[in-house]
Nucleic acid binder design. Structure first.
Length: 425
RNA sequence: GGAGAGGUGGCUGAGUGGUCGAAAGCGGCGGUCUUGAAAACCGUUGAGGGUGUGAGCCCUCCCAGGGUUCGAAUCCCUGCUUCUCCGCCA
């Protein structure tokens, strides 16, 4: 959410910038609601003030043994009036809150203008797709025997997978490798977090109220996490940290659960788009003036995983129209998939500025001026999506016989094994 | 799952219907003293919001959400949560 005061004072500018993101703001309605709100709030508060004064007078009179009946008669209607005003005020406040909470973040000035993913801007590219002297297979063919979709359908349903043998181990090796890299070389502290969260947490990071249909609801007020961003970022909900603690950097590996409600028919082959997948997530809490530098660093931390795995990728700056709800700026890392002959998203690194922090009241106290409390800026990025990394490794490390070489950095996590052969694994 | 006791400011903890946003202590910040520091002493010290150019004035918040009352930290209901005991359990 944006600063309410900012909405009030710069409504036209906000409307203009939201339009870049494809969101039309009914400024007239907002202005109308705001002016009603202002009037009702003043009236309500003055009634509350009156009530307090009268109640105190009654208390005093009673303490002195005076007859309080005349005073009670005097306040007879006050409660009813107050109730009425409060109700009217609440209606306006709720209407405004509903509008404000459903509005996305404003894009940073450096974000490319555009409507959809075709307008995303390529920032850089690392390495080149390999040239193959044989017909490459995709991960579904390569994983024959180890990548078991049929069993998953039987156990659960579509968009799940069972991994077996050396492939399951490679999957686990990737997780260990990523966690070790980020904790040992990039300064992140590892976390283990709940995979089920309440609605307050989902509101804080921006999944609720707008994107409920993307989530698996376990029971009333319990949801499976769609990303570790939710439990991690909410660690500092309603907290005031001291400036010296910043930047805070955390990493966690969790499964992620997504309904993929809007994706029916899309990416149905293989394990590109699953209801359950593993992700290693990077989260940072930083001072506002450093958040864009932090975004570059965090993106580089994610890129490092791909570089060490020697997987060709490119970095895309998402345009206004393709930006996620809470993000002010996002870099997507797209890995080369020979089986698809295409780059596919494998990490998304975003600066949310104060958008999430405001929703969750995550703040810091200035070191020099202890009275000053300011909202933090939050960032996160996948470092990386494990399922997609696994299939990227499979497709990029295949040979003519359909065997998969184990990337060098993973070999120590695989007991020294250098090749996965699905016919023997 | 059963029984009992709790949840108050950064922390400890008092407050069981009236001028309480809340005693006291600790901690923090500023000062006096000191060559410096400590000690001692003095002062100060929660958050969110409304309104106003401003000084200020005002509202809300004592786990959360409802309720009773002229008035609620205090009484009632629901939920969450912590601790102790019992049961069950990876």
């Amino acid at each position: 959410m944006l600063d309410i005061k900012y909405y009030r004072q710069h409504l036209d500018e906000v409307a203009k910038r939201l339009l870049q993101r494809g969101v039309t703001l009914d400024t007239e309605l907002i202005q109308q609601l705001e002016s009603q709100r202002k009037q009702l709030q003043i009236e309500t508060q003055s009634l509350q003030n009156l009530r307090t004064q009268r109640s105190k007078a009654i208390g005093q009179a009673k303490a002195q043994g005076q007859d309080i009946q005349p005073l009670l008669d005097d306040v007879e209607n006050l409660g009813e009036q107050l109730k009425q005003k409060k109700h009217e005020l609440d209606q306006r406040l709720q209407a405004l809150q509903t509008i404000y909470a459903s509005l996305p973040n404003l894009a940073h000035e450096s974000v490319p203008i555009g409507k959809d993913e075709t307008d995303n801007q390529k920032i850089r590219q690392w390495s080149e797709p390999k040239h193959w002297s044989f017909t490459v297979k995709d991960h579904v063919e390569l994983g024959d025997g180890l990548l078991d979709f049929a069993s998953a359908v039987k156990i659960t349903g579509a968009r799940f997978v069972v991994l077996k043998g050396q492939l399951a181990r490679l999957h686990r090796a990737l997780i260990q490798f990523m966690l070790d890299l980020h904790t040992e070389q990039h300064g992140y502290t590892e976390l283990y977090v709940p995979y089920i969260v309440n609605q307050h947490s989902l509101y804080g990071t921006g999944q609720l109220p707008k994107f409920k249909s993307d989530l698996f609801e376990v029971s009333n007020d319990f949801y499976l996490i769609p990303t570790a961003e939710v439990p991690m970022t909410n660690l500092f909900r309603d907290e005031i940290v001291s400036e010296e603690q910043l930047p805070l950097k955390r990493v966690a590996h969790t499964p992620c659960f997504r309904r993929e409600a809007g994706a029916s028919g899309k990416d149905t082959r293989g394990m590109i788009r699953q209801h359950q997948f593993e992700k290693v997530e990077l989260v940072q809490w930083v001072k506002p003036e450093t958040s864009y530098q932090a975004l570059e660093e965090l993106t580089f931390h994610a890129e490092t995983v791909l570089q060490k795995l020697e997987l060709p990728y490119r970095v895309m700056s998402l345009c206004c129209g393709d930006l996620g709800f809470s993000a002010a700026k996002t870099y997507d890392l797209e890995v080369w998939l020979p089986g698809e002959k295409n780059y596919r998203e494998i990490s998304s690194c975003s600066n949310f500025e104060a958008f999430q922090a405001r929703r969750m009241q995550a703040r810091f106290r200035h070191h020099n001026d202890k009275k000053t409390i300011e909202l933090l800026h939050t960032l996160n990025g996948s470092g990386l999506a494990v399922g997609r990394t696994l299939l990227a490794v499979m497709e990029n490390y295949q040979d003519e016989q359909g065997k998969i070489a184990v990337p060098q950095v993973l070999q120590s996590y695989m007991g020294g094994q250098t090749v996965i052969d699905s016919s023997t694994a």
